[in-house]
Simulated scan of single mutants.
Amino acid sequence: MSHSPRIHPTAAIDPGARLGADVSIGAFTVIGADVEIGDGCQIGPHCSFSGPTRIGPGNRFIGHVAVGGEPQDKKYAGERTELVIGQGNVFREFVTLNRGTGGGGGITRIGDDNWMLAYAHVAHDCIVGNHCVFSNNTTLAGHVTVGDWVIISGFAGAHQFCRIGAHAFLGMGALVNGDVPPYTMVGGNSLGRPRGINSEGLKRRGFDAERIAAIKRAYRTLYVAGLPLAEAREQLAAQAQGSDDVRLLLDFIESGERPLLR
């Protein structure tokens, strides 16, 4: 049985591209030089891939996807930068994924098993974790970091340099201009605000009642008790002694450079 790539006759593949075994490439797709596509990737019609870009195995690009384009940053001067994608991701129609910038670390990185639905945009120097869902028209500005198991609803987005912690949930249309702590739900409709914890998502991922109760207590300390941030951090430090989940939340807060979304 042949494991050679299956390439539609109308596709254009640069000789400098590297294609793994069992790759399929649809009609009118263009793959440029210095693009590496892992085994078993499925690429639909009318996609474009620019390098340097490295793509792991088992990814699906449904159609009209633009991968590895130059960063949309006026400071970019043609320096060598990369886009790195893990494995098992799905990218729906018209998703755009940009390479990094020299001043921003040089790499845009996307992890494993993410779903990016139609018209989602990941800008330069973003870091996206694993098992995330970006709904239609999700937009990340440059230098945004997204943790694992994050769900972003349609037409939502993040300001440049913001961080979105693991297991967070952004509602439809939510626009965030500060760091979103792990486990937090952000309300939609224009400027997003914290609206509790993502308890339903945590239950689906196997968090038991005791863990969820500890996270709820930490959320109330941070957002409901009316404490100054410094005092809230002291109380969270005490709560973290008995909870790895609260420790994750506290570490996120203490490592931030942007203001916390409050």
Score class of each variant (00 low, 15 high):
215 I>F: 04
225 A>T: 06
150 V>G: 09
56 G>E: 12
167 H>M: 09
206 G>V: 00
166 A>G: 08
137 N>R: 11
248 L>N: 08
76 Y>N: 05
156 A>S: 15
208 D>I: 02
74 K>E: 10
173 G>F: 14
68 G>R: 01
57 P>T: 13
257 E>A: 14
43 I>E: 01
39 D>Y: 03
221 T>S: 11
2 S>Q: 03
217 R>P: 00
15 P>R: 06
57 P>S: 04
20 G>H: 05
153 S>E: 12
71 P>M: 00
220 R>L: 08
238 A>G: 08
5 P>W: 01
248 L>S: 07
5 P>S: 03
193 R>C: 01
79 E>A: 10
16 G>E: 03
50 S>T: 11
141 A>E: 03
171 G>E: 08
119 Y>G: 09
203 K>R: 15
1 M>G: 15
68 G>Y: 06
32 G>E: 04
91 F>S: 04
44 G>I: 13
170 L>E: 13
236 L>M: 12
114 N>S: 09
56 G>V: 12
210 E>S: 14
69 G>E: 14
76 Y>E: 00
82 E>C: 04
45 P>H: 12
21 A>Q: 13
139 T>D: 01
54 R>Q: 11
7 I>V: 12
13 I>A: 03
149 W>E: 01
151 I>M: 14
232 A>G: 10
245 D>S: 13
94 F>G: 01
240 A>K: 15
211 R>I: 04
32 G>Y: 03
153 S>I: 12
8 H>S: 06
174 A>D: 07
176 V>P: 15
117 L>N: 06
153 S>R: 10
241 Q>C: 10
86 G>L: 04
200 E>N: 11
208 D>E: 09
254 E>V: 13
4 S>V: 01
112 D>K: 08
190 S>I: 12
23 V>P: 00
217 R>T: 08
213 A>P: 11
207 F>A: 02
66 A>P: 00
162 C>N: 15
200 E>G: 08
262 R>G: 07
219 Y>Q: 13
119 Y>F: 15
59 N>K: 03
120 A>F: 06
217 R>E: 05
234 E>D: 11
101 T>P: 14
104 G>A: 02
93 E>F: 04
37 I>R: 01
21 A>V: 02
67 V>P: 09
52 P>M: 05
142 G>C: 07
85 I>E: 03
97 L>R: 13
96 T>Q: 05
246 V>H: 07
86 G>N: 09
159 H>W: 12
25 I>N: 02
234 E>C: 11
209 A>F: 06
257 E>F: 09
80 R>A: 13
176 V>S: 14
216 K>C: 07
251 D>I: 15
210 E>N: 09
166 A>Q: 00
178 G>D: 10
11 A>G: 08
138 T>C: 13
124 H>L: 05
53 T>C: 15
133 V>C: 02
72 Q>G: 03
162 C>V: 15
